[in-house]
Every structure is written in structure tokens, then in C-alpha cells.
Design a protein around this nucleic acid. Structure first.
Lengths: 332, 332
DNA sequence: TTGAAAGCGTTACCAG
DNA sequence: CTGGTAACGCTTTCAA
């Protein structure tokens, strides 16, 4: 119960002044060997830990990074979180984490809560806010958002090229001979949802195929949404031989829907996802998907923010996607 | 860039003293209508936000709860996290989250980091520490741990009855006519791993069956571990008709291993899991499992800690498990 | 190299 | 109901 041991206590114990203890702690000025040892002993003896609050109050920096995720339980954001964690490991920073629950309003309120708590910077995973709103927030604190691209002094956005990735996913299906390709889209209103939809359409058009509204079902990046979407698609009776799902979770939901109807993957229908969650490896059959380097994305976000905080203005590196071929797609 | 507006600035603007502004803010004593309005106007005008750091320094409370999870990306701990989040919603508390990565040493270091940051309480998910170590930490700050049971004034442990749950899972398999039942165990050294193993053995013994070491494979609660374990089990050639996996993630890994060998579930082999992750619903076939109310567990942990912090000593409620029958088990 | 003193922004006590 | 003052625990001038 080492409560409220202060530098003053240590100073008394060591027979020096509080200032000297502070100097010993910060290491900013040199302290004589003798006193160093005395202080070290006193600290040991009293089991002293500096009060971070007082330090922060003085310095103005809390050594804390705020994170706004959209779902604490999401495997996708979880990986991203892990990436940030790795980026800040050993830097003395800690993570204050809140969830926006995909609600723009809640996201904003929680970001402001983080600011009120004086975090040094904020990372928002797949922000639901507009670029303008993010810029506005960034006047108060440096920001990094993922899921879209952006590059300003105090607000950077990190994302794979969603449009191009979706284009290549669809193109892969096309190359395998599929002509009737359905799409389960992401959460409406999100920039990445829109970009993936556009990429899908562009690939189709490039192949001389007119996108068919009956082959596009609205999902929301969740398993349940994927299942709903596949049912919709199947009931609309626009025949198709392949599906491009906006993310792996949707694909998983769709997979169950197909299983329920006895439709085999990939024998009867090919399926491609997006993200490459750990889960994709364990689907039956393992899912062919567009790999988003989720962990690295989080790590990059953390490093980028750290750079901003350190005043370094390195050029922003954007993460790259990659097609991962497994077993859920077959030639038409 | 509303930087460093203080109560003093507000006081000046409103023509009152800093104390009065403070009183207005805390609402602890009444302030005259006139001044209230003046202060409100000044706050609005200056866009003032009280500095939480200074408040915390003064009050000694940071209104922050520290969480030690074992894996930020885990769907299980993610649900638990979400539960805690819900429990603290609207209370003004925030979450400082760190990971112990299943390493006792790291867990301890990170818990101490949280203490150094003056969190008001700590929740550890599935702690790798001994009861004694947890009690020791709890001298510095109230603690709640999940994954085991414990009930002391400043340290409570919340968990389903793992032994009994495993007993009932195994018994269910027995009731379905299975006699040769394999077990994929959890991470070695964890109390819940041990409890589940014991429950499994007890059910077997109760049915007059001698536990067979060849039918027990070591996992680690991960998908990869489950896959490794099933391979081991299959290669040991101790024939069996059912598997009880220590958690759903292991079950998922095992499922892929079985798929690779063309072993059908449940036609050739029955499979039962533990946890009831969202994922269990989406496995092929949907997984029969022991439901741990993970979200509620987190919520309960949050509420329990909140009670402790408020000085309330309500009796600790322990979470209950439940068998969820889906489609991965069939009569032998 | 060291100590004294001021200050970070807030709140609580004490007079009035 | 209100203002002044001290104090939370630390760091950083400023002198010595």
C-alpha cells in the first residue's frame, strides 16, 4: 500500500532536495555519484513511483494515445489494435481505447472524450466521419485514421487502395471464367464500402459486362449481414457463379447461407473475400481473399502517429493489398 | 486550438473567482443564478474544458480502469472487453488497455504500468498469475480477474464453473452414446485448462470409463493449436468418435484438420466446443458448445469493479454456463 | 552540482 | 453565497 510517497519523501530519506531527486529521475542534469546512490537507495527503500499525473500536468503530455475503434469484439479491428500495440511497445505510451459503434455521433463524442483526457494523439479505425470533420478534430490533436487515404500535416489517412483491390478481386474471378459475379457490399456510407463497390463495377465494365443491380446486395461487414445478403441474392434469382464479398466476415455469413441451401463452395459457387482475417484460413474451404495487412496497418498507424508526435515529417507510407489464393474459387 | 484555458480565465471573463467557477463545475455548493449564467457564458465563449489531469491530481482518482487482456485480437477477449465497455458506459470511466500476451511476467509488468498510471482499478482477463500474486497486487488497487473464482475484499475472481461445465459437455457426448471421447486441452498452466480437463475426466469416470492418455492432446486455446492437436490425436491411432475441445477456437482448428482428412462432422466424428463465440454459429456445421456468457462476464467484471470502487460490498454473482446444442454432435 | 521557489490547473478549506 | 489561499506531486528556472 505504498501510497503517496513523493519526491519529497525520497529527498528527505536521501538527504537531498526534491529538485535533485527530480533531476535524478529525469536525468536531464548530472547529479553527483554519491547523491545518485543515496537517492537510488531511498527510492528502493520507500518503493517510490513517480506520480504520472503530476508529471503530465507539468509537462502537458500524457504519453497516451487514444484509439477509437468501431467494435471492440471485431477480429479485424482487434488485429489493427494489436498492430498499434506493437508500434508503441517500449515507447512509454499507453492506449486509451473507446468504441464508436459505427455511429458518427458516438465516434465524435468519444474522440472528444479522448481529447478531454488530454491524449497526445488519436487513431480512428475506419472512421465514419467525413474528411472535413477529421481535419477539424485534428486542430486539437494529431490524428491518424485508417480505411481511407489522406495526407495533411496533422491528419493522415492510411488504407490500401480499396478500389484497385476490389478491381483485382473481381478481375481474378473474371479470369477464372466467371461472368455473372455477385457482390455483397459493406456498410453503407463508408468510403471503403463505396471504393470496393466501384472497383467491382470497373472490373466488370472493363470486361464488357454491365453491372446488374440484382447481383448487388447490401451487407454491413458483419457475418449476419453476409448471411442476409446471400439470401437476398439467391431469392432475387439473378443467377451467378461467383461472389465477391466486401469482407471476410460477410463471406463467412454467406458461406453458412450457402451451406444451408446445400450449395457447395467452390463446386457450385466461387467465393472471394476481403481482409484475410485469421478466420479465412479456417473456413471450409479456406477462403481466397484480398489480403489487407491489418496488423501492419495498425502498426503503421501507430508509427505514423508517433512520428507526428515527435515532430518528424517522414513521408507517409500506404499499406499494400495482395491477392491470397486458397480454395474457395474454381474455374467456371 | 483552445489550449490552456483555465478556470482562472473563465473566472476573469465572468467576473468571479476561480473558486466559484470550480463550484459551478462540481455543483457541490450552490452558486447564485446571476453568476451561474455569467460563468456559463464565459465557458461557452472561451470554449473551456476542465483539465482532467489537474482534477485527477487533486482528487487522486483518474476515473480510469485498467484492463489486462491476453490478446487484443482475440474474439473471446474482445467480447469480454465489450462487456466491460457496456458496464462503464455513462459512468465517466475510461479504459486503459494493455496485453499480457499470456506471459506471466509481461502481465505483471503491464499491471504495474497501469498502477503507475494511477488507474482506479484493474480487470485481468484470464490471468496467468497465481491467486497469491493477484492478492498481492490487490493491495495497491482493487482487482477483478476472470477465468477463475475468488472472493476477497479487494480481489474477486469471476468465472463459470469450468469443471462442472466440462463435466456436462462430456456427459452430453456420453449420453449420445459416445464412449471413446478425445479432449483437446487448453493452454497449459491455466486454471481453467486444468478445470476443464478434470471435468472431462470426472464425466468419463462417472460413466465407468478410464481416461486414456492417448485421447488427450495439448492445445493452447488457439486455432493453430487445435489443428495440431487433432493431427496428434489422429496419428496416435487411439480411435474415438467424439472430441471435446477446450474452447471454440481449438474446435475450429480441429475442424479444418478433419476436413483435410475427409473426416465428416458429425457423420464420422462429433465435436463439441466451449465458449460459444459468434464464430460457433458460422462453423460448418454450426458448433454444439458450452456457452460462456462472455459478454456478460465482461459486464459483470466491470460492474463488480465499479461496486468495489464505490465501496459497495454486494455479494459477488458468478456467471453461469449453458449447453448450446447445434449440429456438430450426433448419436454414436 | 545543488537548493529554493514558482508554477502546471484544479479543488477544498476557511473566513466573511 | 463568495473570494483568498493552500495543496495535490512534479519539474524547471534562477541563484548560488
Amino acid at each position: 500500500m505504498s501510497q503517496n510517497i513523493t519526491v519529497l519523501d525520497v529527498a528527505r530519506e536521501a538527504g537531498v532536495s526534491a529538485s535533485t531527486v527530480s533531476r535524478y529521475l529525469t536525468g536531464v542534469t548530472s547529479v553527483s555519484k554519491i547523491k545518485q546512490e543515496a537517492i537510488a537507495r531511498a527510492i528502493e527503500l520507500l518503493d517510490f513511483t513517480p506520480n504520472v499525473l503530476a508529471q503530465s500536468l507539468k509537462s502537458g503530455s500524457t504519453k497516451t494515445i487514444g484509439i477509437v475503434t468501431q467494435a471492440l469484439e471485431s477480429p479485424f479491428f482487434g488485429e489493427e489494435l494489436k498492430g498499434v500495440e506493437q508500434a508503441i511497445a517500449g515507447t512509454g505510451y499507453a492506449l486509451l481505447i473507446v468504441s464508436g459503434h459505427w455511429q458518427a455521433r458516438e465516434e465524435k463524442d468519444h474522440a472528444e472524450l479522448l481529447i478531454a483526457r488530454r491524449v497526445d494523439g488519436i487513431i480512428i479505425f475506419t472512421s465514419t466521419a467525413s474528411d472535413k470533420q477529421i481535419q477539424s478534430l485534428s486542430r486539437q490533436v494529431p490524428m491518424v485514421v485508417t480505411g481511407r487515404r489522406m495526407d495533411m500535416p496533422r491528419a493522415v489517412g492510411l488504407a490500401v487502395d480499396n478500389e484497385q483491390a476490389a478491381f483485382e478481386a473481381t478481375q481474378y474471378l473474371l479470369e477464372q471464367g466467371h461472368r455473372r459475379i455477385a457482390h455483397i457490399s459493406g456498410r453503407v456510407g463508408q468510403p471503403d464500402t463505396e471504393a470496393r463497390l466501384q472497383g467491382y463495377k470497373r472490373a466488370l465494365k472493363t470486361a464488357g459486362i454491365k453491372p446488374d443491380a440484382k447481383l448487388i446486395a447490401g451487407g454491413d461487414f458483419s457475418e449476419a449481414g453476409g448471411m442476409l445478403a446471400i439470401n437476398q441474392l439467391l431469392e432475387a434469382r439473378g443467377s451467378f457463379t461467383a461472389i465477391f464479398a466486401a469482407n471476410d466476415q460477410s463471406a463467412l455469413g454467406a458461406r453458412l447461407g450457402l451451406y444451408r441451401r446445400g450449395i457447395r463452395v467452390p463446386e457450385d459457387l466461387s467465393l472471394i473475400g476481403f481482409d484475410d482475417l485469421l478466420l479465412a484460413n479456417y473456413m471450409l474451404p479456406p477462403l481466397t481473399t484480398i489480403r489487407q495487412p491489418t496488423f501492419e496497418l495498425g502498426k503503421l498507424a501507430g508509427q505514423t502517429l508517433l512520428n507526428m508526435l515527435a515532430g518528424k515529417t517522414e513521408t507517409v507510407v500506404q499499406p499494400q493489398f495482395e491477392l491470397v489464393v486458397r480454395e474457395s474459387v474454381r474455374r467456371a
